[in-house]
Amino acid sequence: MNSYYDNILIKSVEEQKINYTVISNLSYYIENLSKHFLFVGERLDFNNLSNHKFVKSEQRDISFDAVNFIKKLIEEKICSKDDAIIYIGDSLTENGYEFYLNDLLKIVPFLVNEIPQHHYFLSKDFKKIIYISFENEIEFGGVS
């Protein structure tokens, strides 16, 4: 069953005509997230990942910095705009969602402004992750 936040996310994605897939059972992704990425307590340990990038947004609206952060990953060829990305929230959304990274640029402002939770964007091959925290921190890291 969808939460309120899942419903508003789906509505926004459909209004923007973004291709997406709903992932109602996240256990496969959560299990592999834990298998491929180290955690310190409940947080990802980005310091042990390759290509670690970090931004602390000082803006009230983090969406501008988040979009620019992702664009820079594409420009630096660390990620491709055609990469399939799995979106996982940490509390308010029940489902996961699969987007292409290029479409993620369109929906990130909605996610960070309308859904107050930590946001994880995991590459489908479990080698890269983008994290946007509720505390306006944006991080990226990869595994070899």
Rank of each mutant, 00 (worst) to 15 (best):
D61A: 10
N51W: 00
I62G: 04
S24T: 14
L49R: 09
I130F: 09
I8T: 07
C79Y: 12
K77W: 01
Y131F: 15
I115Y: 01
D103Y: 07
L33S: 02
Y120Q: 08
T21R: 10
I78F: 09
L111Q: 10
S57I: 03
D61G: 03
K11T: 10
I88P: 04
A84R: 12
D83I: 06
N102Q: 09
F99G: 06
S123Y: 08
E94C: 01
K106N: 03
K53I: 13
T21K: 13
K77T: 06
I138F: 01
I74Q: 00
A84N: 15
K127I: 10
I78H: 07
N51Y: 13
Y87K: 12
E14G: 01
N19A: 08
D82T: 15
P116Q: 00
V112N: 05
E42G: 10
S63M: 11
S12H: 03
I85V: 11
N68Y: 04
H52S: 07
I107G: 04
V112P: 11
H119E: 11
N102R: 11
K17I: 00
E42H: 14
K72I: 15
C79L: 15
I23Q: 03
K11L: 07
E14V: 02
L105C: 08
S63I: 10
Y28R: 13
L44C: 02
P116C: 01
E114C: 07
N102A: 14
L122F: 12
L33A: 12
G141A: 05
N19Y: 01
L44V: 08
A84L: 14
I86H: 04
H52F: 13
K77M: 06
A66S: 12
Y87S: 13
I10H: 03
E42A: 07
L111H: 05
S133T: 12
I130T: 00
D6S: 04
L9I: 14
Y4S: 04
E75K: 14
P109E: 01
V55A: 09
F39Y: 09
F134Y: 12
E75I: 14
D82W: 05
E15C: 00
R60N: 06
